[in-house]
Amino acid sequence: MTGNVVSRRYAKALFAIGAAKGEAEQAKYGEQLVALGQSMTDVPEAMGFFRNPSFSAEEKKAVLNQLVEKMSVDPMVKNFCDLLADKGRVEILPAIASDYKAMMDAVSGVVTGELITVGELSDERKSAIQSNLEKQAGKKLELSFATDKDILGGIVLKVGDKVMDASLKAQLQILKENIKRGE
């Protein structure tokens, strides 16, 4: 919980700086943060290094600076990363990137969601479902698709903090509860 509060504060600070510089800069900061966060989470050893308290802030800063230089990010994002290293918060960079992206999505009216099915859907079906959901929501929808054999059939749609469970597993669970209650 504390990590979430801290990451939101850092994301909000950089978001405010980006807003003061303009929408294009704000979006660029977000893209670069997400890329940095993704590169850190893609390599579990890197996250282990940044979480390890036996390494000094200077050592972490040196490694982070190499990563930042390799990705050639904006000087403001580099300074932000240096601040995180100085404060011993480098390990929450992926969470900060996620919070920043959520703020950008909220400003631009983009909603993220996940659709879970039993089997893999074709690309045409995915795009048709996404366009129908976008029409219903009246907003742009970034939809990720996943499969889960445990739902037995149907779909589970998660959009924001809402979940629509139209799976066979959920229907059977409701039926089971009704039978237990004698309905």
Rank of each mutant, 00 (worst) to 15 (best):
K28Y: 07
E114Q: 14
K12P: 01
G154Q: 12
T117G: 13
K60F: 04
D165M: 06
A97Q: 06
V163Q: 07
V110C: 06
G109Y: 02
V110F: 01
A95M: 14
G182E: 13
N4V: 15
S108M: 04
Y29S: 02
S144T: 15
S131V: 09
L67D: 11
N52W: 00
G3D: 11
I96N: 01
S39W: 04
V77F: 01
D123T: 15
L157V: 07
G30C: 05
D105Q: 04
G109W: 04
K70D: 15
V43F: 14
I92G: 05
A137I: 13
V90D: 00
Q38G: 09
A106P: 04
P44S: 14
E23G: 09
A13M: 09
Q66D: 14
S7Y: 03
A27G: 12
E59S: 01
K135C: 10
D148V: 14
A20T: 12
V63K: 02
S108W: 00
I17V: 11
I129C: 05
Q66S: 15
G30I: 04
V118C: 11
E58M: 00
L168M: 07
P94A: 09
E25P: 01
D105A: 01
Q66I: 10
M1K: 13
V68Y: 10
G113H: 09
K87C: 04
I151E: 12
S108G: 07
T2G: 10
K140E: 14
N65T: 07
F55N: 07
Q173E: 14
A85V: 05
V159N: 09
Q130F: 00
D105C: 02
F15G: 12
Q171P: 03
S131E: 12
R8V: 06
E134N: 08
E69G: 15
K12E: 05
V156F: 02
K126Y: 06
A170L: 03
L168Q: 06
F80Q: 03
L172F: 07
I129D: 07
Q26A: 01
I174N: 12
A102F: 01
K101S: 05
A35D: 07
D123Y: 08
A62Q: 03
V68P: 11
T117S: 14
Q136G: 15
D123A: 15
V43K: 15
G48E: 08
S127A: 12
A27V: 10
M76Y: 09
K60N: 00
G109V: 02
D99R: 08
V68F: 10
G119M: 11
D86M: 00
A85R: 02
K140V: 14
T41A: 11
E31D: 09
